[in-house]
């Protein structure tokens, strides 16, 4: 079974994330980046599926030079090879352009049995790329899987909602997005870190994918950030001195905020 896992290099949520002043795109230079945590579940699930049968896991990312770190982490976890789509013209791409690039890259890799993605990225958190990608690849789409089994040419997934769980089935090849409930991603081991250095990483530009620069980037984006403002600093809390009426004041406060 051959699997392609789409991953994203995102600014570390522990850092002070912001946008670029010049064009309102995500600042990827000023903060440390890492493999999106939600994508680690996708990599783990792919590795488990391949380990249970056979085949290869290819990790694929679209992003600037630094995005290679996300691929490296996935290779250290155990993925077999990686493809990095990068080109200056890609800067500022939104979800439709990203899904176009991913789709073209997957077609060039050779359509796999399964494409696995995380449920969303931890920076944009739109969660729409899996659906767009499935549409572009003309694949059945199984999203938000919290449990996944593949038997022959059938893929079965459990989707957990707020009030009920549903089990759905699709035929391979298919695209599956997974939630953070599906597994416990492994850490790269010492062997994994050492082995990753020798694994093949291909770097493709727009020309390699037959994509015109006008189809991607900020100019082609359907959605743009018009403006941004830093979160205002937390206001100082109000200290209420209890002069025998503390309970009343507390109740008034809660009522004013519509808690009671």
């Amino acid at each position: 079974m051959n699997i392609v896992v789409c991953v994203k290099h995102v600014p570390d949520a522990q850092s002070e994330r912001t946008f670029n002043d010049s064009d309102n795109t995500t600042d990827r230079e000023g903060v440390d980046g890492l493999l999106s945590e939600l994508d680690e579940y996708a990599v783990e699930e792919a590795l488990k599926l391949v380990e249970a049968s056979e085949g290869e896991v290819t990790v694929l990312t679209v992003g600037p030079a630094g995005a290679a770190d996300a691929l490296k982490k996935a290779l250290q976890m155990g993925a077999h090879k990686a493809v990095h789509v990068t080109d200056d013209a890609i800067h500022g791409s939104d979800a439709p352009a990203t899904s176009l690039l991913l789709a073209k890259a997957i077609e060039k890799i050779g359509t796999p049995d399964v494409v696995i993605t995380g449920m969303a990225s931890t920076d944009g958190t739109m969660g729409v790329v899996p659906a767009m990608l499935a549409e572009r690849l003309n694949l059945p789409m199984v999203t938000y899987a919290s449990q996944l089994t593949i038997d022959g040419s059938a893929v079965t997934a459990r989707r957990d909602g707020d009030t009920a769980s549903e089990t759905i089935e699709a035929t391979l090849p298919a695209l599956v997005s997974v939630t953070d409930q599906i597994n416990e991603p492994r850490y790269p081991s010492f062997k994994g870190i050492m082995a990753a250095k020798k694994k093949p990483v291909e770097t493709w530009g727009l020309g390699d994918l037959g994509v015109d620069a006008g189809q991607v980037g900020l100019g082609a984006a359907w959605t743009k950030v018009d403006s941004f403002a830093k979160r205002p600093p937390r206001e100082k809390g109000e200290i209420v001195t209890d002069e025998g009426d503390g309970g009343t004041k507390l109740a008034e406060f809660l009522a004013s905020r519509k808690f009671i």
């Binding site: 250290q76 081991s189 870190i193």
Partner: peptide
């Protein structure tokens, strides 16, 4: 980089 990746793995663990 190998050394730094290795250290990061242990820190994470």
């Amino acid at each position: 980089d190998d050394h730094r990746d290795f250290t990061a793995m242990v820190h994470n663990l």
